[in-house]
Amino acid sequence: MVEAVLELKNLSVGYDEPLISNINLEVFPGEVITILGPSGIGKTTLVRTIAGLIRPLSGSFDLNVERRGGLGYIPQRLGLVRHATVAHNVSLGARTRVGFSLNMWKERSQRTMDALRMLGIADKSNEPVRRLSGGQQRRVATARTLAQRPQLMLADEFLGELDHSNVEIVFEAVQNLVDDGTAVIMIEHHDDNAQLFATRIWEIQDGKIADISIKEWKNRKTGGEEE
């Protein structure tokens, strides 16, 4: 039986008051979950709690990933080192996975370059991140996670206002991770992007999460026409 990478047990998240309460959900390898809901409802708080950046208000969660490099996180503002080069930023992902050895420099560099090529930014590797466009920076953040190859990837609106071609490039990279068994939890505002990636939707309403399969969600959207 496949073990869940994430298990939420009666979890309540929020700052002073709970924003989302009594979450009981599991996430398995290879799943892509999109969190939907209006602004300020607790999507980011949930993701930050799973990332270990905020303490849960009550309940708990089991994160069955390796301590170093098992979790990938792309915050809303991408979390890039703006004054460092693209290659340096992407190599941070590789650093978490390549331990000390004689070949570590070569391995890190290989992982970094592979990720840069997949995201189509290998020619920008020596550019400081601050000089790139918003879309290119999103590709750098994705490349960092690709070089990391985490077991669980958390992404907070990382597609942002990307144009169609950029979304496709990022989609291909994420698909590559998912094919290797990475589970993805991402916050998304656009229904189209949610459909493109997700296998399940977590819809947040009135402080509760509804866990919906992508098929059911599409049916809802089309009013059952696809059935």
């Binding site: 990332a51 170093r68 979390g79 941070l92």
Partner: peptide, 14 residues
């Protein structure tokens, strides 16, 4: 800015 710190912490960088 906290975002780069948070991302690297969540990733498990020492």
């Amino acid at each position: 800015a906290n975002d780069s710190l948070e991302a690297s912490r969540a990733m498990g960088l020492p």
